[in-house]
Amino acid sequence: MIKAVFFDFYYTLCVWGQSLEPRLRKITERYGFEVDPERYVKARENLYAEASGSDPTTHSLLGTMQEIIGSYCEFIKGLGVQEHVEQIAWELLQSEHSLFAASAATLYDDAIPTLEHLRDAGFKLAIVSNWDTPLDPLTERLGIAHYFDIIVASHDERVKSAKPDPHIFNYTLAKVGVSAEAVVHVGDTYEADIVGARNAGIRSIKIDREG
C-alpha cells in the first residue's frame, strides 16, 4: 500500500520561466544558429545524465558553478555549435539556473492541485532533489513548503549523497518513517530519478515536462 510520494524538484514541480528548448532557440537564433531537434534530444539527455552523476557535496559553491558552466558548454557543443559556445552557455544559465535566476522560478500549473490532492488523501510527501543550494527558502517563496514532511537536497551535509545514490532516498525514507515498498517517486530524469529510486527499492514514475 502506497503511503508516501517523493518528488524531484526541477522540471517536476518547478521550472525557470520557459522550458529549456524555447529559451535555447531564442538565444541561438541571435547567433544565427538553428537547433537540430535530434541533436537537441541527445545533448539534453547527456546534460541531465551528467548533472545526475555529479555530487554537489564534494566541492565548494565556486566549484559547483564551474562544473555547471562546463556542463552547459558541452551541451552547446553537442548541438553542433562551434562559435560563441561559452557566451551561449552563460546566457542560457542566466535564464535558467537557481544560482543565477532563482527569482524566475515558477511552479507548473498542476503542482499545487496535485500536492493538495495527495495531502488531503493522507499521503506523506517529500522532495528529493540534487540541488546545490538550500531548497527550503525557495519552496517557501513558491508557497509549497508546507505540503512536505521533509525537503531533502543533496547539498545538505546531513545527507552527503546525490541521486542516483540510494542513500539520499534511504535518508528520506527514515525521516518520513515509511518503507521503500510504500513509496512512489516522481521525477523527470531517468538516471537520477528512475534508476536512483530503483536502487533504493522504490517504485518510480518518469514525468516528461517537455513532451
Rank of each mutant, 00 (worst) to 15 (best):
G32P: 08
T58R: 11
I205A: 13
V195R: 09
P56Q: 04
T189L: 08
A104E: 13
S60F: 05
A101E: 07
D193V: 08
D136I: 08
K26M: 03
A104V: 06
I27H: 05
L99D: 02
R209M: 14
G211R: 09
Y108Q: 06
V195G: 06
P134M: 00
I76L: 00
H97T: 13
E86N: 06
T133C: 04
E140R: 14
A89S: 14
V128P: 00
V41D: 04
I68L: 10
Q87S: 15
H97K: 04
P22T: 06
A145K: 13
E96N: 15
F123Q: 03
I127M: 04
G63C: 11
E67S: 03
T58L: 14
A111M: 03
Y147M: 08
A174Q: 11
F123G: 02
N130M: 12
Y48H: 08
M1F: 13
T12M: 04
G201P: 13
L135V: 02
P137Y: 07
G53Y: 07
H185N: 05
F100N: 01
S19N: 08
V159T: 06
G143E: 02
D193G: 10
G70A: 09
T114E: 02
H167P: 00
L135R: 01
S54G: 00
A126I: 03
Y11H: 15
R30G: 14
D208Q: 13
D36Q: 05
I151Q: 07
E45F: 02
G63N: 06
F33M: 06
V178D: 01
G70S: 14
T12N: 08
G201I: 13
Y190D: 02
V186E: 04
P56C: 02
A145I: 12
K42W: 03
I127S: 00
S98M: 04
G143P: 02
T172S: 05
L125K: 07
H84E: 14
V5T: 09
A182C: 03
G211S: 10
N170L: 12
A51V: 02
P166H: 07
N46P: 01
I88T: 12
V41T: 11
G78Y: 12
K163R: 07
E116K: 15
E96Y: 14
A180T: 01
A145H: 14
E86Y: 13
R158N: 15
F7W: 05
E140G: 07
A182K: 05
N130S: 08
K42A: 13
T57L: 05
S54W: 15
Y108E: 06
S98K: 04
V128I: 14
V152Y: 05
I27S: 07
K3I: 04
I144D: 12
Q82R: 15
E29H: 11
D132Y: 04
F7S: 09
V178R: 01
I207W: 10
L135H: 00
I2T: 13
A43M: 01
S179F: 06
K163G: 00
D55M: 08
E67R: 09
A180F: 03
P22G: 01
S19R: 11
S71V: 01
T106I: 15
A4F: 10
S71A: 11
H117D: 14
L107G: 07
N170Y: 08
N130Y: 09
V183M: 02
K160N: 15
E67T: 08
T172G: 00
Y171R: 01
L13M: 10
